[in-house]
Design a protein around this nucleic acid. Structure first.
Lengths: 84, 84
DNA sequence: CATCTATGTTGACATATGTCGAACCAGGCG
DNA sequence: CGCCTGGTTCGACATATGTCAACATAGATG
């Protein structure tokens, strides 16, 4: 999880998806992060493999959304040590 | 921050320091993570550069502790999007 | 001072990673 | 069917990263 978010481009992509209206974003909505479009696709794939995002094709476009369990998991991971 | 914790060895080291009695750990307490001692030192340096740990030499040993602001920062970073 | 233990630094090296261009699918549309 | 647009996969390449052995430093201690 940390490894997946370790790359600046992936962090931006993840953030863009997470903060996008409706909780989902088409690739075309978030693909202006300063790298070529194949690279965007590559990073989105990594994020998907890491279980942070899910993708769904609807017609021409592919929509990505944040896997809901992820933020909860990170919350548990970090809040507990902080309290201890 | 995510990049610093992206490496498994660093994540273990950070976790070991964070969960150690007294909030601090001597290098000798946490150096059995499966890599050589220079490598441990190297990763601890990275964690320090990333602002996640601080170090202090007391006599023969060097003690590492978690920078307090870090867990709070991560909490803010993740809890807010989760609520939104 | 000589020396021993605990850490840090350096240099070299193999591997992983990010990046791009080119080629390749998928679906809508004339 | 032919083509255009959105997206992914492939292959190649440069750079970053993790790792270790060897050497260097900091204190303690005799």
């Amino acid at each position: 999880m940390f490894k997946a978010l370790g790359d600046p481009v992936r962090l931006r992509l993840f953030s863009a998806v997470a903060s996008h209206e409706g909780g989902e974003a088409c690739v075309c909505d978030i693909s202006d992060v300063g790298v070529s479009q194949p690279t965007v696709s590559h990073h989105l794939k990594k994020l998907k493999e890491a279980g942070l995002l899910t993708s769904e094709r609807r017609g021409t476009w592919v929509y990505y959304r944040v896997e809901p369990s992820v933020l909860a998991a990170m919350g548990r991971l970090l809040v507990l040590p902080a309290a201890a």
